[in-house]
Amino acid sequence: MTAPRTPSRAPRALVVLSLIGGTLFVLPLLGLLTETPWSRLGSILSDDIVVDALVLSAVTSIAAAVLSALFGVPIAWVLSRLQFRGRAIARAIVTLPMVLPPVVGGAALLFALGRNGLIGGFLNDVTGFSPFSVWGVILANTFVAMPFLILTVEGALNGIDRRHEAAAQTLGATDLEVFRRITLPMIAPSLKAGLLLAWARSLGEFGATITFAGNLQGRTQTLPLAVFVNLQSADREPALAISLILVAISLTVLVSLRDRWWGAR
C-alpha cells in the first residue's frame, strides 16, 4: 500500500458505491409511483378493502408493538441479568423468528395454537381463541416483531452503568422499584427504538399472518395481505394504492420518529 497521497480518493469511492446502492432503494419506489393510478386514487383509497385493511393494520401493528414491549422487556431483562444454564439457547430461541422464514413461523404457530395444535384445542375450549381472528394477526405479528425489541433492549441493559442500580438500592428501593425508577428510564431511548422497529416489522408482516390467521377482509386481511391478494387479480389498482399507503405511512413515521427520538445524536 502506498501512502494516501490523494486523501479524497477513498471517500469518493464510498460516495459512488453509496449512490449505486441507493438506486436499489430509489428505483423500486419510482416504479411504484409511476404505476400508481393517480387520477382514480381517491376513489380507490375509499374502497372498503383499503379502509378495512388500513384500520386492521393500524390496530394490529400497534397492539403487537405494545405486546412486544410488555413481554419483550422482561425477557430482555432476564437474558441480561440472570445467570442460568441454557441462557445462550434461550437467547437463540427468542431471536429465531428474525431469521426464520415468516411462513415457517406461521406454520409453527398453527402446530402449537391451531385447533389441532399442541395447546390450541384447550385454548379454544377455555378462551374461544381462534387463529382466524384479529387476535391471530396480533399474535403472528408479535411473534415476528418481539425479537427486534428484545435484542435492542437487551443491548441497552448490558450497556448501562449498573452501579446506578446499586445506588438506588442503597437508597431503599426494592428490586422492582429499581427497575421501574432507574433501569427503565436509563434504557428509554433503546426501548423507543425497539418499539419502532417492532412496529415497523409488524406493519410489513405478511408470511406468518397469512399462514396462521388466514386472509379475510375486515378481520385478518392486513395491508400487506391485501396487496398480495389483489396483485394476483386482474385489477391491480387497489394493490398499488395500498402499497402507496404503506410507503407513505412508513416514511412519515420513520422520518418523524427517528428525528424526534435519535435526532439529538
Binding site: D161, H164, A166, Q169, T170, P185
Partner: peptide, 21 residues
C-alpha cells in the same frame, strides 16, 4: 439485610446521580 433495608447512606466515587431525574 438487603441494601434497601440497611439504612447505610452511600456517597459513591463518581456520585452516580440519576441523570433522568
Amino acid at each position: 439485610v438487603s441494601p434497601a433495608q440497611r439504612k447505610v447512606g452511600v456517597v459513591f466515587q463518581d456520585y452516580l446521580l440519576f441523570d433522568h431525574l
